[in-house]
Design a protein around this nucleic acid. Structure first.
Length: 228
DNA sequence: GCGACAG
DNA sequence: ATCTTGTCGC
């Protein structure tokens, strides 16, 4: 049987066991090639959830104009939704479609920002971490809300952040990306540290809550701006 | 047993 | 995530 079929059509029990195994393969140290292109990934749904829409936006990294970055490529890929949303198993629902979008990409980014958690997950394998292993690329998870971990209250100033803990381990950061707005949850996915993750997210932040890569991918994956 | 729970 | 217009606030 095709490995891909095996990998994604798992019962919750098996999916959780696989996450525990895959998490052992994560590299939580920096192993990035010089960054020239950064991709943003997000998934949306249509037809009441029957169709999954994956959006990937590739931006050219330019420290001279950042956070204003030019879009060099963008792809939207649709396919039938294969499984429901189950807290903790999001990657099994979203990654197949995300991979479909990446296959259509002509540019291979050196860094990928994903809408969701990296290792800030019960078994340390949020969608960003899982996707990083599949793509073998550095990934950062930027979630709009918390899934796992404890933290103190974060300051009100833009840039303030507090660590996100799983026991004594720091698994991410709660970042005030913009004043007067709920903070975002940043966590490394694969081949990157939390410190480097925060540095890149901050560099890509332009007066908005989300960094440019995922902000633009969100817009593409969402239903309003980009219509059918 | 009772909550919590990315998107 | 998605269903959905106007409206309050910096």
């Amino acid at each position: 049987m095709p490995a891909a079929l095996h990998e994604w059509n798992l019962a919750p029990r098996e999916a959780r066991a696989l996450q525990t195994q895959l998490a052992k393969r994560l590299e939580l140290t920096d192993r990035l090639a010089p960054v020239e292109h950064i991709a943003g990934v997000d998934i949306g749904f249509e037809d009441g959830g029957d169709t999954t829409r994956a959006a990937v936006v590739v931006l050219k990294w330019d420290p001279a104009t950042a956070p204003d970055l030019s879009v060099v490529e963008q792809v939207v890929h649709r396919e039938p939704t294969r499984m429901p949303y189950i807290p903790g198993l999001l990657s099994f629902r979203e990654i197949p479609a995300a991979l479909g979008a990446f296959e259509q990409l002509s540019v291979r980014p050196e860094l990928v920002m994903v809408d969701g958690q990296g290792i800030a997950h019960p078994r340390r394998l949020g969608v960003a971490a899982h996707l990083g292993l599949w793509l073998d690329l550095p990934t950062i998870g930027i979630a709009k809300s918390r899934l796992y971990g404890k933290h103190a209250e974060v300051g009100e100033q833009r840039g303030d952040w507090v660590p996100l803990y799983a026991g004594n381990d720091i698994i991410g950061a709660v970042l005030r990306s913009r004043a007067n707005v709920k903070p975002v949850f940043v966590s490394p996915g694969h081949r990157i540290t939390l410190g480097t993750s925060l540095a890149w997210v901050t560099r890509c932040l332009g007066g908005t809550k989300l960094p440019e890569p995922t902000r633009l991918a969100d817009r593409l994956a969402s239903r309003r701006d980009q219509r059918k």
